[in-house]
Write a protein that binds this DNA or RNA. Structure first.
Lengths: 341, 341
DNA sequence: TTTACGCATGTTATCGGTATCATCAAAGAA
DNA sequence: TTCTTTGATGATACCGATAACATGCGTAAA
């Protein structure tokens, strides 16, 4: 759809107009606004008056072009719909706005190709930094990033070899720890429900962690214990049904994502399966709902807000002093034991 | 914190470089990329080759400045943390990216002053359109918007007099309809739990709708039946306790937002209050969780994704043909009756 | 054959700021 | 008093693209 767009509306007031009104040069206006200490008190005032008399709004686009400096950070998530990302977005936004930066958001639609497209679009807009949720990328995406030297922080998993930096937790360790916990508690048939694995390092790492935990505990990883499901409350409910049918003696299920576990708890209530008496339930991601469920659900708590904050900080830091060495910042997960196990 | 930022990294390749490599003028490169049909087949190819030989990424900032045209839309929400907005964001994003536009997001922190600040920041960045969740604004915000003539769509409530356009549903009518439904079902003491009212037109409209519904049903609006609570599952649980204590005969509660109702359901289970036998529960916002609760919860379904899509479309439409008349697009809500009433 | 017109391409100015260097006055040093 | 230094301000070029107009060529119309 080709749209004939109209030019940007108002803001017809340029720095020149302010300069004229204040009887100074444009350069002085620019200084008065950005480096007030370099301008005499009297001029600073004259400029300030002129600015709001004419209603001047600096043009950030022109400033960016002229200074080859942008103040927009791009964030790419698998999806915007998933509420899990909300905390992270807020963390990023809080840090960025504090320093006058802006946040652009795009989603990859859970596909690597989508991510590459989004990266290209952001680089086209000359973002000054990128925060990527993915840790897997297409060759093209890597090429693009290598070409434009801009800080990049990957936040979906504490990847061993980040492009530039990573701020996250280890999905592998988290899943492993939870599995070990279940095994230690005596559960012997521990089911595992994963979100889609395709193009998703996080899901794959969590499954790896689950398998490692089982192996270390001397337990069997029967294929029938593992289920791949889409996200959502409904999936959790369905998963319980399927796992139970395929493994009559199953005594625990570890839901590796989303609100699956909530659906599972509700389904167990419906089926009159005592939790944890008949079957234990554990979750990933501490949706606050989990602590209010009956029983409250044991889960991995992920420092989502912190990840947002710290990743934005890392971007800003790298803007001021480009670091040659990849950085890995491990914001540890935490296991919250509650009644469901 | 004053940071000494470094200039934008790579992209050292300008349109001039491409032009040189292709042996044409910069203008021809520009045309070949934006209006291929105006350039001869042979040159188009030469340019295309040069582009990827030198790894050219057009500079959108320069393009914007030069053409006085931006392709970034700004979205301001009360909070980014609230998962309710996720669907709307996705709707907006889907439409914008389809046409090569970008999305910038900021939050007002539930304050009108915060909104004004965010608006100013966006106008500074020369967004080509604004989508505001609020329908109340500071004087300053209105002045800013009036000055920069840019499409503005308000989406939080179907406000009677939008600044420019509104795409939403009527919070008043929705709350009224739900209240009437409860009254028709025979409930006589209908409690109402609202989110904070300060600076929040939506909350105020919903309460107004509730009161209107009660009045039309000939019911009493005892102050003890109305509770103002922060959002969150815990609040819903607490609200049940307090309403029940203050009104022993209360037979229904209408939760006007968020996941409050889920908390309420869980609390009723805990207290052994039969739903809806002893007390009916109704909600606003169709979190998918509500349909999986025991019992599933009656609620107002809001077309959140549609609101996102349509509002973005309205922005784009107004960019191509500035409409002088305010537009109101009513995307109707829907009442979903389930077991909880 | 001549005039005109259309199409493909190039030239120049411009968008609205900022970097850089030049300028100049006042203050301090010799 | 004269030279140097320092701080405040201005002039100019430039960031990287696009708008608007100019050019030159080929073909159709007169």
């Amino acid at each position: 759809m080709d749209r004939q767009e109209v030019p940007l509306g108002g803001a017809r007031v340029s720095i020149q107009d302010v300069a004229r009104h204040a009887g100074v040069s444009a350069m002085t206006v620019s200084r008065a606004l950005r480096q007030p200490e370099k301008v005499s008190e009297s001029l600073r005032q004259r400029v300030a008056e002129a600015v709001d008399r004419v209603g001047y709004l600096p043009n950030g686009i022109a400033a960016s072009l002229s200074s080859s400096r942008s103040n927009v950070v791009g964030l790419i998530l698998p999806s915007l719909r998933n509420s899990l990302f909300a905390d992270t977005i807020q963390g990023i936004s809080d840090v960025l706005h504090r320093t006058g930066h802006h946040l652009m958001i795009a989603d990859s639609g859970y596909s690597l190709a989508g991510e590459e497209e989004a990266i290209r679009a952001f680089l086209h807009q000359r973002v000054c930094g990128l925060i990527l949720h993915n840790t897997w990328h297409t060759e093209g995406a890597r090429r693009l990033i290598a070409q434009i030297r801009v800080p990049v922080v990957e936040i979906g998993d504490l990847t061993p070899e980040p492009i530039d930096a990573t701020v996250s937790y280890s999905n592998f360790e988290a899943a492993r720890a939870m599995t070990l916990l279940l095994a230690r508690r005596g559960y012997r048939q521990i089911g595992f429900v994963t979100l889609p694995l395709a193009d998703n390092a996080r899901s794959v790492e969590r499954r790896r962690g689950y398998l490692a935990g089982l192996a270390e505990s001397g337990l069997d990883a029967a294929p029938s214990l593992i289920l791949e499901m889409p996200g959502g409350v409904g999936s959790g409910a369905e998963a319980i049904g399927r796992l139970h049918a395929a493994n009559p003696d199953i005594d625990a299920v570890f839901f590796a994502g989303d609100v699956l576990a909530v659906g599972a708890i509700l389904e167990c209530q419906r089926r009159n399966l005592a939790v944890p008496g008949r079957i234990a339930i554990a979750s990933f991601d501490d949706v606050d709902l989990l602590s209010y469920a009956n029983p409250p659900v044991t889960t991995v708590r992920i420092p989502r807000y912190d990840i947002g904050q710290r990743s934005a900080e890392v971007v800003l830091d790298r803007l001021s002093m480009p670091a040659p060495t990849p950085a890995r910042l491990d914001l540890a997960f935490q296991i919250i034991e509650r009644g469901s196990t």
